[in-house]
């Protein structure tokens, strides 16, 4: 009988530990492939996760910025345009909460890609940033070639964007905030128009910050 109680206690303890760990780990999104490497003469099978490819654009200060500046950083990406009449203002209002929470954190950034490069030139982006009340380098508004931005959105950040003359503003886009970890992997996607989900994003950023650095391979 006593043995049985002991076993039950152990099972319960194990169960408790397990739920704790799953709760504090964020999933890794995207495609994954198994790769077999030879390490020290031994065959080792490892998982390669989908990562955000290299890109080089211009930010609201006219500086050439891109994936190199995001290496080893946690960042949140979204897609917008300055003349957007629909969901952008509500997204920016929610993103301001994220900005205010982490603006003094050195390993964190927010990257907002414009999907209207014809209209959103560097001065337009700078003016927008000033009016939004953002300064410094923790939130970049990025301007890049239309096709590269649309490709990144659809294939890497998994956000649908397109030109569409039938919608207000002329562009269709989803309002997701995409969370990227220090290894350039997608770790979460949140509806930027929903304050509850954005609060979850803020919590998840803290979880990512607490995640141990990957061991050198």
């Amino acid at each position: 009988m006593r043995k049985l109680t002991g076993v039950i206690v152990l099972v319960l303890l194990f169960g408790a530990c397990k739920t704790n760990t799953t709760k504090n780990t964020l999933p890794i999104y995207g495609q994954r492939t198994a790769v077999t490497k030879t390490v020290n003469g031994q065959q080792v099978t490892d998982t390669d996760y989908q990562t955000i490819p290299a890109f080089k654009f211009v930010n609201q200060y006219g500086d050439s910025t891109g994936s190199k500046d995001l290496e080893g950083k946690i960042y949140v990406a979204d897609f917008f345009f300055t003349s957007c009449p629909s969901i952008c203002p509500i997204m920016q209002r929610n993103m301001l909460n994220v900005y205010n929470e982490f603006k003094n954190t050195p390993d964190f950034k927010i990257i907002s890609f414009t999907i209207d490069p014809k209209h959103d030139t560097v001065p337009v982006l700078k003016n927008y940033a000033d009016k939004l009340g953002i300064s410094g380098n923790s939130w970049w508004l990025m301007l890049g070639a239309r096709d590269s931005v649309y490709n990144l959105a659809a294939k890497s950040y998994l956000v649908a964007v397109s030109e569409d003359s039938t919608v207000a503003g002329g562009y269709m886009h989803q309002g997701y905030f995409v969370l990227i970890d220090k290894q350039k992997r997608v770790r979460g996607s949140y509806d930027g128009t929903d304050m509850k989900q954005v609060n979850q994003l803020i919590d998840d950023i803290k979880t990512l910050q607490a995640e141990p650095a990957p061991t050198a391979q």
Binding site: P89, Y128, K131, L132
Partner: peptide, 8 residues
Amino acid sequence: GEGLSALI
């Protein structure tokens, strides 16, 4: 009805 910074 709070608007948005100096934009709205």
